[in-house]
Amino acid sequence: MSTHVVRLPEAQLQPLLAAYNASVRSRRRHTLLILACVVVAMLLASVSAEVSLSKLAENIHRFPSYIVRLFFLENGQPVWTDLSEWFWGLPRWLRLLGETLLMAYVGTVLGAGVAFVLAFLAAANVAPSRWLRIVVRRFGEVCRTVPTLVLALIFVISFGLGPMAGVLAVIVHTFGVLTKLFAEVIENIDMKPVEGVSSTGSPWHVVMRFGALPQVMSNFTSYTLLRFEINVREAAVMGFVGAGGIGQDLVEAIRKFYYSDVSAILVLILLTVAVIDMLTSKARHRLIGLEGKA
């Protein structure tokens, strides 16, 4: 069996081929130009960031050796040979971890609570007043753009060292992020139930309660649970600026070169975060499953 490929006559083929080559060439040029821009930007940035590859090459061996060093005790033995020595501060660290979790919990619940109310004022389709909406939106934007640690630093001045400053920072940031997410959820709802309820002459809050709330509740819960996961991580570093939680001991151990303490605290944090992630993702899947059944 032989196949016959139809081939255009040379005279017709030439211009087509030329056009194809030209288009490929122009795309290549385009890509190269973008690549050149990126490379130039990288070079300028590396001047500004004092990048020195020679310094890196000279010292890079310290990175793996630091990581390895984390897993050896003061007496030169690997950490797993003497668990009680490795986790010598366990009671104190567990207490601080508990404090971290409480900070994340209170921060998430209170932040989400405020966001829950304000999101209805910030959503374009249900907001009662245009000015209020703009004010709430801008306020939320500021709250979520100021980095959490900066907020914590400012709160530490006014509330003193301790978990209070950290919780407030988490609350403010959570509020900023969730107001935006919640408002977006509300903007995507089906407006028919809302119209139905408002056609009965009900006041605004009743319309929201029976028209909008049932549609958004599961999404809200899911976003809040996700935020809780993130807040546990955030609360764990609040101690870096003295705002409570396990971060205080971690940063002290790193600064004072207590290598085995660093790894012990990191292991505890990683385990806690992993367990929390697992639990919340289970809860979220149950929630989605429930919704699927209904």
């Binding site: 960031a49 004092e50 310094k55 890196l56 890079i60 310290r62 990175f63 630091y66 990581i67």
Partner: peptide, 11 residues
């Protein structure tokens, strides 16, 4: 950790 390796600074 990287400060321990390459020193203080933006790098």
């Amino acid at each position: 950790i990287w400060i321990n390796v390459v020193g203080l600074g933006p790098f």
